[in-house]
Nucleic acid binder design. Structure first.
Length: 499
RNA sequence: GGCCCCUUCGUCUAGUCAGGCCUAGGACACCAGGUUUUCAUCCUGGCGACAGGGGUUCGAAUCCCCUAGGGGUCACCA
């Protein structure tokens, strides 16, 4: 399957929640590197925590990746030669390794109850020492341990961290060194015989022949534990690269406090997936420093882990929104209409069937407003007037105020309606540039100023202070609705404002 | 607090590894103009940074040291 010497990357989420936006970036970078090098991208589900892992989250995460266009060569759903890809399905293997490590003296049993550990930790904290296991059970003889087991005590298995120091070369940070004395004798297998994260990660990265691990910086302090375990197993550790954290506007690790953290939230808000991908790239990586807008092809062609910056990046919602708008403007009206349709339906403007029945019209409506919205979810607000009743259209106060600035508005509107109707009867253009030209000429003939007609007209047709080209709007509305709205507005403007 | 990591405009970043091309470039945001029937788009211009201090060097954003600041991590979570 995979050729030797080809990198093997992985993304290993734990299904304890929605796919985090930071996790999405981690997946993206791993994926990009695998794709650039012709290597493999593996998806592995780290579900060793039975209390927090949920099947639905696994689905959500896979779905999120798929919606972003990130695919994987091996994973729980597609299988692969190194499967299974769910850690709960690999327990037997881990326990075998644990037993071997124990036999070889790299690990020892610990019978200390949680209460003792907690008390120890508190005492150490109080004494301003670093909380860590004191090695109490390390000195137990085989007989003593056996006796405790016979008495029904259930031990955990701790890794026996050796003396010395552990160093590794991080793709992003360079040489990183930890004193082993700083590394706790961490637990590999819990009292209930389930293996822990740091242990299974090593087993899996080894079994799955993972060559490069790009992960968040929060894992940096886990790395010496894992490297030491690889050494105990007589294996080479993969090459690590710790990505800088994505920070909230408060400068701390991105959390719900300062905004949405789940990929799905952004998808649900109608950020174009391409914009999300592009924006994620910019958190810690740059194509060339000159171009901010680029697609996955360019990411794949150029991504190099060593180019990733070291410092954390504050997630800027403003720039993200701008980028979303860029992608909306660059899309084709056809595809945009398609992507916006669910949001129009959700906003209650029309049913899916109704929209499907006049697709061409919808595409025109979208095109007329394309440079005005940034998120798919913003479109309903922009084109809601197209779906409203002709009589009693809700007017934005600003729009009404603008319309009322012109004392002759009711008469002007009425005259315009008459003219427009005649034009329609004569079979002349009722939309676009032709109508715009003719209208301007009409305005000039009557000695009016452009705003004198346009402001009341816009209010009459849309009720909004701003929006698409008036003549596109007339075209979208059609003659009947246009005339109906003008008549309604002329009447409403003929009497003083309610408030 | 210990350990580890980090530090270029308010924000994302280019430049740092191979010191001079940097009077530090681009983008978002902001400000000021322009285009436009409105809003938006678009165009032009402006504002704005090498955390501080020592070295090394003819020359440092780039190399070294110190200080300060920020972050991460210290679970029978991952």
């Amino acid at each position: 399957m995979s050729a030797p010497n080809k990198p093997r990357l992985r993304f290993a989420p734990s299904p304890t929640g929605q796919l985090h936006i930071g996790g999405a970036r981690t997946a993206l970078f791993n994926w990009a590197f695998a794709r650039r090098t012709g290597g493999a991208f593996v998806l592995r589900v780290e579900d060793t925590d039975p209390t927090r892992s949920k099947k639905e989250y696994e689905h959500a995460i896979l779905d999120g990746l798929t919606r972003m266009g990130i695919d994987w060569d091996e994973g729980p759903d597609v299988g692969g030669e190194y499967g299974p890809y769910r850690q709960t399905e690999r327990f037997d293997g881990y326990l075998g390794v644990a037993a071997a490590l124990f036999q070889a003296g790299y690990a020892y049993r610990c019978f200390c109850p949680s209460e003792r550990l907690e008390a120890l930790r508190e005492a150490q904290m109080a004494a301003k020492e670093n909380p860590r296991y004191d090695g109490c059970c390390k000195a137990l003889t085989k007989e003593e341990a056996q006796a405790k087991i016979s008495a029904g005590e259930e031990p955990v298995l701790r890794f026996d961290v050796p003396e010395g120091e552990t160093r590794f070369t991080d793709l992003i940070r360079g040489e990183v060194t930890f004193q082993n004395a700083e590394v706790d004798d961490w637990i590999m297998v819990r009292a209930d015989a389930t293996p822990t994260y740091n242990f299974v990660v090593v087993c899996d990265d080894s079994d799955m022949q993972i060559t490069h691990v790009l992960r968040g910086e929060e894992h940096l302090t886990n790395t010496p534990k894992q490297v030491l375990l690889f050494e105990a197993l007589g294996l080479d550790a993969p090459i690590y690269g710790h990505l800088p954290l994505m920070l909230g506007t408060d400068g701390k690790k991105l959390s719900k406090r300062t905004g949405d953290t789940a990929l799905i939230d952004y998808l649900d808000k109608g950020y174009p997936p391409e914009a999300i991908l592009n924006f994620l790239c910019l958190q810690g990586w740059a194509l060339d420093g000159e171009h901010d807008l680029f697609g996955v092809d360019e990411l794949i062609a150029n991504f190099e882990p060593t180019d990733v910056s070291k410092g954390g990046s504050i997630f800027d919602p403003e720039k993200f929104l701008w980028m979303a708008g860029e992608y909306v403007r660059r899309d084709t009206p056809e595809r945009l209409a398609e992507r916006c349709t669910p949001f129009l339906v959700a906003a209650g403007l029309a049913t899916l069937e109704q929209l499907d029945a006049r697709k061409d019209w919808l595409v025109r409506a979208v095109a007329a407003h394309q440079e005005r919205f940034r998120l798919y979810s913003e479109l309903p607000d922009w084109i809601g007037y197209l779906f409203a009743d002709d009589a009693g259209l809700v007017w934005d106060p600003k729009a009404e105020k603008g319309a009322r600035k012109h004392a002759a508005a009711p008469e002007t509107l009425a005259a315009f309606a008459t003219w427009l109707a005649a034009r329609g009867a004569a079979g002349e253009a009722l939309e676009g540039a032709d109508l715009a030209e003719a209208t301007k000429a009409w305005v000039a003939e009557r000695g009016l100023k452009i705003p004198g007609l346009f402001q009341p007209l816009r209010c009459a047709l849309t009720g909004a202070p701003g929006g698409a080209d008036l003549f596109e709007i007339i075209g979208l509305l059609g003659l009947d609705a246009t005339l109906a709205r003008i008549a309604d507005a002329a009447a409403r403007l003929g009497v003083p404002a309610a408030s």
